[in-house]
Amino acid sequence: MTESEFLNASDAVFDRIETVLDDGDFDVDLNRNGNVLEIEFDDGAKIVVNRHVPNQELWLAARAGGFHYRWQDGAWRSTREDGEFFAQLATLIQQHAQRLPAF
């Protein structure tokens, strides 16, 4: 994937996250600044989604740890274990919002 394709794909991921959380009336604050999207919860917890352009990866950071994902076989797959980006993000959001978003 070219850098331009990666940027477009990761923009689409950020857009999808914002749309699902806004349309689902999740009580979160979203702050998108360049390569970073922060999701802040009422309990003070944050989930940070970061696109790492040199490695063409999406990174998730939360209290539960840090996770890296790369586009493989039509999905954002974990680089370290068996897992998919949106499934992990939904689980992390549920821990603080008490409900599961439908990505």
Rank of each mutant, 00 (worst) to 15 (best):
M1Y: 09
M1H: 14
T2M: 01
T2L: 08
E3C: 07
S4A: 12
S4Y: 08
S4D: 14
F6C: 11
F6G: 04
L7K: 14
N8Q: 15
N8H: 15
A9P: 09
D11Y: 11
D11C: 08
A12Q: 06
V13Q: 13
F14Q: 14
D15C: 10
D15W: 03
R16V: 13
I17R: 02
E18G: 10
E18Q: 14
V20Y: 00
V20I: 06
D22M: 03
G24P: 06
G24Q: 11
D25K: 11
D25R: 05
F26W: 03
L30P: 09
L30H: 04
N31E: 13
N31F: 05
R32H: 07
N33I: 11
N35P: 10
N35D: 13
V36F: 02
V36S: 02
V36D: 02
E38A: 10
E38I: 08
E38D: 10
E38P: 08
E38L: 11
I39D: 00
I39Y: 00
I39K: 00
E40V: 05
E40L: 03
E40P: 02
E40M: 10
F41G: 00
D43F: 01
A45M: 04
K46I: 07
V48M: 06
V49C: 10
V49T: 10
N50Y: 05
H52V: 10
V53W: 01
V53A: 03
P54K: 04
P54D: 03
E57S: 09
E57I: 08
E57P: 07
L60F: 08
A62F: 03
R63N: 02
R63I: 01
A64Q: 07
A64G: 04
G65C: 15
G66L: 08
H68W: 07
Y69F: 14
W71N: 05
D73S: 15
G74P: 01
A75M: 07
A75E: 14
A75D: 15
W76P: 08
W76V: 06
R77N: 04
S78V: 12
S78L: 11
T79E: 12
R80M: 01
E84Q: 10
E84C: 07
F85L: 14
F85M: 13
F86K: 12
F86T: 13
F86Q: 15
F86V: 12
Q88D: 13
Q88P: 12
Q88S: 12
Q88N: 14
L89P: 12
A90P: 12
A90V: 05
T91G: 04
T91K: 13
L92G: 01
L92Q: 01
L92D: 02
Q94Y: 02
Q94S: 03
Q95Y: 05
A97T: 12
Q98T: 15
Q98C: 11
R99P: 12
R99E: 06
L100Y: 05
P101L: 04
F103L: 15
F103C: 04
